[in-house]
Each structure stands twice: as structure tokens, then as C-alpha cells.
Design a protein around this nucleic acid. Sequence first.
RNA 1: GAGCCACUAGCUCAGUUGGCAGAGCACCGGACUUUUAAUCCGGGUGUCCGGGGUUCGAAUCCCUGGUGGCUCACCA
Length: 496
Amino acid sequence: MRGGLMRLPANESESDLVKARYDNLEKLRERGIRPYEGDVQATHTADEVSEKVDSIDEEVSTAGRILAVRSHGKITFMDLMDRSGEIQLYFAHDDLQDDYEVVDLLDIGDLIWVAGKPFRTRTEEPTVRVADFDIVGKCLHPLPEKWHGLTDEDLRYRQRYVDLVVNEDAFDTHVTRSKIVSEMRKFLEERDFLEVETPVMSTLAGGATARPFITYHNALDMRLYLRIATELYLKRLIVGGFERVFEIGKVFRNEGISTQHNPEYTLLELYQAYSDYEGMMGLTEDMVAHLAETITGSTEVEYDGEMIDLSPPWRRLRVVDALAGEGVDVSAWQDDEDARAEAERLGVEVESGVSRGKVMEKLLDRLVLPDLVQPTFLMDYPVDISPLAKRKDNEPEFTYRFEPVVGCMEIGNAFSELNDPHEQRRRFEQQLEQRARGDDEAHVMDEDFIKALEYGMPPTGGLGIGVDRLVMLLTDSQSIREVILFPLLRPLEEGG
RNA sequence: GAGCCACUAGCUCAGUUGGCAGAGCACCGGACUUUUAAUCCGGGUGUCCGGGGUUCGAAUCCCUGGUGGCUCACCA
């Protein structure tokens, strides 16, 4: 396209700032410079130049984005940023002669390639004395202010690319996220777990109690659901003999948005045959401690102003004991109604008709969770809210199930997997009864899963970890949106 | 879904009791050959989130709509 053509920005004032950049773009083209082309073979990153400034005697080349310009007439300093960090550039008329005029046509935000010898300035700042340079990408919008960055959260999420350019913390958080997931894979692969991929779309959304998103397949004329968990497919693979599997993937839950919830989020689920929830507790604390140590250098992390010690073993707290600590005696409840009455007495709202298990879960959320800063395994959840977990031998009202809680956040869910097909059918049938009573989050019947269990599934321990929340913990982020590159937002209305 | 709060220049923010729309950075013009939040001189670039109302006069008060944040509810 010709330089004169441009999409005008929404308001006049920005238009002036953008116009100046289009003017510079046109002037570059008039000089025969192609502002989106260039041979960008870089020999060094910015940090490598800084590190080796005293040992390199030959010319280096590097590429990145201009973050700051300090012009002094016949010389100009710039700060160049790449993925590794920043390096100062020194442009001098004496070195560049006529090409020095082009330096004036560079704007903050432009992407350039430079070549020259590294040196230190009077103030010892590592610097590249530019002998040759090329613009390889023009920035047509002004960047946010250099030391406050971009703080408007809405804008930061809508234009994450700008956020990442100007807010180093945001950049680092997402680099750390990537490292966490990578380390997680290594940790599990070293323990002989196999990574697999299971369907995102299917005709049933099972494995968790949550409302699914619904979509549609035209050719098959069929309603499909986006998965809410990977559990039931992964356990089929345990039946199939994989014995140790994991999947790190997005799941989708049609629920509200909060600082701890995004409708699509990343879940690690793993299953280990011939293990159980004890084994899963060990694996959880080992893995989280290992990740903290590897990523942050310590098993002690600061989260929301509190020091959290992630080194094993973690505290174990039975659900009934946790509630007893709040003055709630679960054994005194004769029926669901007693449970609901107790909730009302404690000022905790519960929906009418919910089971005692749901009441216990609610009381835990409201009374216990807010105090659980240090890592804790909340253990032995009631059976009526745990349709896929094995009952405890000596307490059939409870299951071998736990949730790891850190920094007052539930970061996962795990249990000894129910592997008795007849018991599983009864559990699903109970869930259907709850569904019939209006609970549209109750689990659905999955005949094929039961058939899989009928072929024999070994005793198995299963664990799910909310990867986003784990990343929050290890990056001291108080909102899940900080650790998701593009969190779900309402679309902006066209034309306001 | 409910309550509270916020929205002013490209960005970060002031704006008093209702009385001419402001600052820093960015940007434009000028000076400047080792600066680094460069400095110095000059320039304010605006749908005060949108719409309506009260008023001689509204960024400011009222109503309404939008978006976001926080708290709650639901969930991991």
C-alpha cells in the first residue's frame, strides 16, 4: 500500500501522533529504505552484548525494539529491547555520515537491526557503537509512557501485545508460566508418565460437576460439548494399559468470571495405576516444591504478602476435623435438613434442597479456606459430591479424595479412583437424581465409561492441578487474568 | 446475577464550593558529539466514557446506558 493510505484512529489527537509516524515511514521510503524488510541475522542478544562487552573486539549485530531515544544533535543514544533485556545504542554523525539523517526518522517502538562494536561509555554503560543499521518494522502507534507503563487493566488485557512490550513484570510472568509448564512435563516424564491428548469436543461433558459450553457439528447434525475435564478419557487409557498418563490442556466451564476463574483454563490431570490418594499427596507436594525450587530458586515463596513454605510434607487436615475446628459437628447431622439448618445458623447461604455434602463443601469454602495460607491437604470429602472417587473402607460416607490448598486457593483435586463399575453406575444414578432435582451441574451418565471399567481398571490415583492457579502462586499474581495471556473479555462495541 | 467504586490529552494522573480544560512523559519546532527518567527554549494536541436532565453556566449535581475493578453468588 502507499504511505498516504491509512486507517484513521478513533480520535483526532492520536491521529496527529500516528500521522507523524506515517510521515516518517514515507520519508524512509523516499530514501529507498524498505521499512518492513531487512536481513536480520543477529549474532547476539541484548544481554549477551552487555555480558561480553569487555571481551568482544569484533563487530556484533543485534535486533529489537526501540524503547527510548536521547538525541544530542550529532549523536543519539537509544535503548534497544529484545527478549533477553536491553542494550544501549550509540549513533554518531561521524560514523554514519549521510545515514545519520535516517536516525531522526526512527520512532520509539520501531524494530531495528544494528551492527557495530560494543564499548563502554564514560559512565560504563555497555553500548553498541552503531556502524550499520536497518529498520525492519515500523511502529505506527505511540507506546505508553516509559516508566508508568500501561496500567489500565482492561487495555492491558485487550492489547496484551502492548502490555508485554512496556510492562516487564507482565512479560516475566508469562515467561515464568511457560517455564513452569515445561518443568511440569519434565518432572512427570522423569517419573515415566506419558503425555496424551484427548478430545476437547464430545457428546458428553463429564469428569467434573460444572456447566459445559455447547457447540454444534454441521455435517453430523450433532450437538457437541466442550470438555469440562479430561478425567474420563484418561481413565479409559488407564484401562488400556498406559498406567501412567497425563494431559495438560484447556477445559471450559460455563461459569462466572472472577480473580480466580476464567471460563477456559488450563488443567493438568494425571493418573497413576497402582497408586492411590496417598501417592497423589506425595506426588503433589513433591512436584509443587520442585517447581518452586526450580522456577523461583526456593521452596519458600511470597504470595499476597505472606511467606509460604512449600517444602514437604504438607499439613493434612480431614474435612470433618477442619469443620470441627469451626465448631461444626458433622456427625450430629441426622439428615440433609440438619446440615442446611447448621449452615443457616452460621450465616452461610446455601441453596434449598442441597445435600449434606454440598453444605460441608460450602462451609469449607466460607469458614476454613480463608485461613489456609500454608499448603494443606483437605482430605476425605463426602461421597455425594465425589461421584468418581473411591469410598473409604471404614467411613463409607466419605471418600479417598483431597484438595490441595495453598494461599487460600484450591489448586487441585485428587482421589483414589473408583474402579468398581457397579458402584460407578450407582454413583452416576445418584447424580442423575440430583440433576432431576434441578442441579444442572450434577454429573451425567456415561455408559461407555462404565463399560470401560467393566473391562477392569487397576487401582489408580488421580490428580488434577489448576495450572493457572499454580502459576499465580509462583508469580505472586492476585488475579488469574495476570497469568492468562488473553483472558476472556466482553467485546468492545463498534462505534461506541 | 446483586452491591460499591472508577472512567479527564497517545500514556500516567491533578482538577478546590458548579465559573476560561491542567501537569509530567510522549509528540511537533529549535539548540546540543558520551547521554541514560538527558538537558535547555518554544508549542496543548481534548467527544472530560455515551445519552438525557437541572442550571445563567456542568468534568463537577441528578437520571440513564456502556466498559472495567472490587466484594458477594457459582465454580477449580
